[in-house]
């Protein structure tokens, strides 16, 4: 005699509901269309790299440099510090604006994101080395997102 486990029972519940109240056939396709249309005007515009500086910090495997990007009236200044196989980005957005900054590491997107403070600052830590882009998403939904070109840490 084998006792039905909690997961077995919940599995039965899922099966039963999937059979007796199935997702309407058209629903997934129409939701995909609705979401795609809503998202279509959110495509990120590209920022332009206007300055790059390198400062060597000395210690092996460590270093820091700054990048400056602009898009419209927004300036983005980044200080990127490498420590071993990880890096951190300290950023300033000028003028300050409520937005979420996401790191999009090249091939393996991970969840590195931060919200800009009132003074326009943000930090992203523990980033992997390699290719990186930052995506800036203004919380004012009428403003389109923008993104930096890919740069390498």
């Amino acid at each position: 005699m084998s006792e039905l486990s909690r997961e077995d029972l919940l599995g039965v519940v899922r099966d039963v509901w999937e059979r007796h109240d199935p997702v309407p056939e058209h629903l997934v396709a129409s939701m995909q269309a609705a979401a795609a249309i809503a998202a279509s005007d959110l495509d990120a515009e590209l920022m332009e790299l206007v300055e790059r500086s390198t400062e060597l910090v000395g210690a092996r495997g460590a270093g820091a440099y700054t990048l400056r990007f602009v898009h419209g009236d927004t300036d983005l200044l980044l200080r990127i510090a490498v420590d071993g196989d990880r890096s951190r980005v300290d950023g300033w957005v000028v003028p300050p604006e409520p937005m979420t900054i996401r790191a999009l590491p090249g091939e393996v997107p991970a969840s590195h994101a931060a919200v800009v403070t009132e003074s326009g600052r943000f930090e992203l830590t523990g980033l992997p080395l390699g290719l990186l882009r930052l995506r800036l998403e203004p919380h004012d939904a009428t403003r389109p997102a923008f993104a930096t070109p890919t740069f390498e840490i």
Binding site: R14, W17, E18, D21, V23, P24, L27, V28, M31, Q32, A35, A36, A39, D43, A44, R102, L104, P109, A110, S111, R133, R135, A147
Partner: peptide, 24 residues
Amino acid sequence: NRWVAGESSGLDDLVAVMTPVLWH
């Protein structure tokens, strides 16, 4: 993650996998 990185198929996949969960 793929959607945020700019792939619209990421949004399609997210919608396809989560719509049934949301329905129930």
